[in-house]
Computed example of a mutant assay.
Amino acid sequence: MKHQYWVRTAAIAGVVAMLTTGCSVMGGGKKADIDPPPTAGADADAQTTSAAVTIDMAADNSAQMTVYVKDPKGFVAPVSLGLPKSVSVIKTTLENMVDGGPETSILPAGFKALLPKNTKVLGANVTSDKRAVIDFSKEFLNYDQQDERKILEAITWSLTSFPTVEKVQLRVEGKDLKEMPKGKTPLDTPLARTMGINIEKATDAEFGQSTPVTLYFLNQNDQNYKYYVPVTRLVKRTDDVAKAVVDQLVKGPDLKKGLTGVLNTATEVKSVKQGADGLVTVDFGSSKLLDTDQKVPGDALQSVILSLTENAGIKQVQIKVDGAVKITSTDNQNYTKPVGKPVHVNEVKM
């Protein structure tokens, strides 16, 4: 049933047509699990989003927020910025995803906000069923058709980064948006992360017989800013999503797209075990994993954790090497205990 739902969602967003034609991470902040969602009242944006902002408040009157923007290679990627504190962090987040928005000048070189210039956020409410209802001004419709899906991905993945939001409904000037006007993407149901991001298909997978897994690979701009890019890959249908994620990370990215893999393609995966409590334990062999200093690359470990916790039902990851939980990593983080999903990804240092 889940496979059918995802395929329907992907088809609605124009994925098939597109494909046939064509802890704080990476920053200096502390690692932490996402906070549990607070109790929210109906349509209470101020209440709901102000609770979410307690994830990470800085002392300089700013809050760490994640926006999804277009990177120099055209991928939709998360960037974590220190943005001004506000009552409605959802509204502030979206305003900083508008081309020419108040803080878009602090994006890394080559990154571009996807929402059209002069777009205004007229309303941003979160309902009791974790649905963010976003009302844009008419300028939202002044976008390039080639960016239509990227815009939807950016909005959906940015807002569902908040623990109080699971789906997104779009309006323009107070009226529900039934479809995107240029590419005709239907919006008859709220958007969710099940739509995927930067979608691609494995060569041995078929559209009607596939399972989507989201993987995090590395990229870098021309100013040596290194960051993770999420890619939803359709793979041969499987019920063991955790193993599929790790196997695909070992397989690596599509080299034609310019991303960098995080694991040696000869890395040995001894076991991937998922418990009923949402904990996945991954045991790697050391021979192709350790660097010359006998350390595990921190980028690889963070990518494994990001990728696994992005997929449904996985809350924490325990990394082992040759059966041992005591690991020396290049990022000097402690991986002896299970690690949860990072709050912020690709933090930009000011």
Rank of each mutant, 00 (worst) to 15 (best):
S271C: 04
G313S: 08
F207E: 07
V213I: 08
A312H: 12
L259E: 02
N311F: 01
T238D: 10
S287A: 10
S303C: 06
K320G: 11
Q274W: 01
Q294D: 14
I305D: 05
G252H: 08
S271K: 12
E206D: 12
G285N: 00
G313M: 06
I199Y: 01
L249E: 06
Q316R: 14
L308T: 08
K251H: 15
T189I: 12
D291S: 04
E268G: 01
T265S: 15
L234R: 10
G252C: 07
N264K: 12
L279M: 10
T194N: 11
G275A: 14
D204C: 03
G298H: 00
D322I: 07
Q248F: 05
V246K: 09
V280L: 07
N221D: 15
S271F: 07
D277R: 07
V246G: 11
D291M: 00
S286I: 03
K256F: 09
F284Y: 13
V296L: 11
K257H: 13
D240K: 08
V262D: 05
D283T: 08
L290I: 09
A300F: 02
T267G: 13
A202Q: 11
A266M: 10
V282Y: 00
T267R: 14
R237L: 14
D254S: 13
R233D: 05
K236P: 06
N311C: 04
I319G: 12
G208W: 07
K226E: 11
N311D: 10
T309K: 06
G313L: 02
P297T: 02
L218Q: 14
V317E: 08
L234W: 04
T238S: 14
G261D: 02
A266G: 03
V245A: 13
L301G: 01
L263V: 10
D204I: 00
Q316P: 01
F217L: 00
T265L: 09
D322V: 11
